[in-house]
Simulated assay, not measured.
Amino acid sequence: MIIEKSCISDLSAHMELYHKAIAFQRSVGNANWIGFDDQAVLKEIESELQYKIVIDGKIACVFLLTTSDPIIWKEKDADPAIYIHRIATNPDFRGQNFVKKIIDFVKDLALKEHKTFIRMDTTAGNDRLNDYYKKCGFTIVDTISIQGTADMPTHYQNNLFTLFEMNV
C-alpha cells in the first residue's frame, strides 16, 4: 500500500470513484454527495491537494487534504489543522479501514507541519458514518448549518453537517 499525491493522469480515476461513492451513498439511503466538477478536481490535483492510496498498481482510495476550511470551521479555522475531505473508496477495496490509514498518514504530516488538529466533516444524520469516525478516534465538535454558499460544492448548500476533530 502506497499513499501519494495524485497526478493529472489520475483525474478519470478520481471522478469514477466519486461517481461510485455517490451510487453507494444512494444505495444505503444517504445521498450526501451530488457530484463534482472535473475541472475543480483537476485544479485540486494540480494544487497537490488530492491524494490516492495505491494497492497492487490500482487506485484503492482517494481523498483531499487542505490546511484551511473557513466556510465550515469559521473562527476555528485559525487553529493549526489539516482537514480531510472527500474520501472515496474503490468498491473492490472496501472494508480495509482506509480512514484509519489516512489518519496515520495525516498524523505524520501534521507533526511535520506543526499542526495540532485533524478535522473532517460529513452530512449530519448519517449515524453509521458518524459512529465509524468516532471509532477511528474523532470527536464530534458541532453540528452546523451552511446556507447558500456558492464557493462550496452543491451538497454543502442548505444542509446540516457534523464536524469532527482529533488532537494530533
Rank of each mutant, 00 (worst) to 15 (best):
K115Y: 00
K134Y: 04
D38Y: 12
E46G: 02
W33A: 15
I103V: 15
K100D: 08
K74R: 14
N126W: 12
A124L: 04
E113Y: 03
L129W: 00
T122L: 14
E44Y: 06
V28P: 05
V41I: 15
I103T: 05
V28R: 13
R119E: 03
K135P: 03
G29V: 05
K52E: 03
L64D: 07
Q50H: 04
G29W: 07
N97I: 08
L49P: 03
I55E: 13
G125W: 00
D104A: 15
Q96F: 14
R128Y: 07
A40P: 00
C136V: 09
V106P: 01
K101Y: 05
A124V: 07
L65I: 09
A88F: 07
F98L: 13
C61A: 12
L42T: 01
A124E: 05
P91T: 00
E75R: 11
K76I: 05
G57W: 03
D92L: 15
K135W: 04
A110R: 05
T89F: 10
I72Q: 03
W73D: 07
G35N: 02
I87T: 07
N90S: 03
Y51K: 01
D77I: 13
L64Q: 07
V106N: 02
V28W: 01
E48K: 12
H85D: 12
A81P: 10
G95Q: 11
L111R: 08
F117D: 02
R128C: 11
F63Y: 02
T116D: 08
A78T: 11
E75C: 06
D38T: 01
G57V: 04
E75K: 13
K76T: 14
L65V: 08
L129E: 02
I87F: 10
G125T: 03
T116S: 12
I34D: 01
K112G: 12
P91N: 02
W73N: 08
I59W: 03
D79L: 15
G125F: 10
L129I: 08
P80K: 14
N30M: 09
A78S: 13
D37I: 12
I84S: 13
N90T: 00
K101M: 13
I87S: 11
D104Q: 13
I59M: 12
N126A: 05
H85M: 09
A81V: 11
H85R: 07
V54S: 10
E44T: 09
C136T: 05
D79C: 06
N130W: 00
T67I: 03
V41F: 02
K43F: 11
I71S: 04
D131H: 14
K107Y: 06
D108I: 12
S68K: 13
S47V: 05
D79R: 12
D37F: 07
D92E: 15
W73P: 09
L42F: 01
S47I: 04
I103L: 04
I82F: 10
L129N: 09
V62K: 00
I84H: 09
V28T: 10
K134M: 15
I118E: 01
L111S: 03
K52Q: 04
A78Q: 13
A124K: 04
D131L: 08
K115R: 11
I82N: 07
K135I: 07
Q39K: 10
K101F: 09
A40M: 06
I84N: 06
K134C: 15
K74S: 12
K43D: 12
G57I: 06
H85T: 13
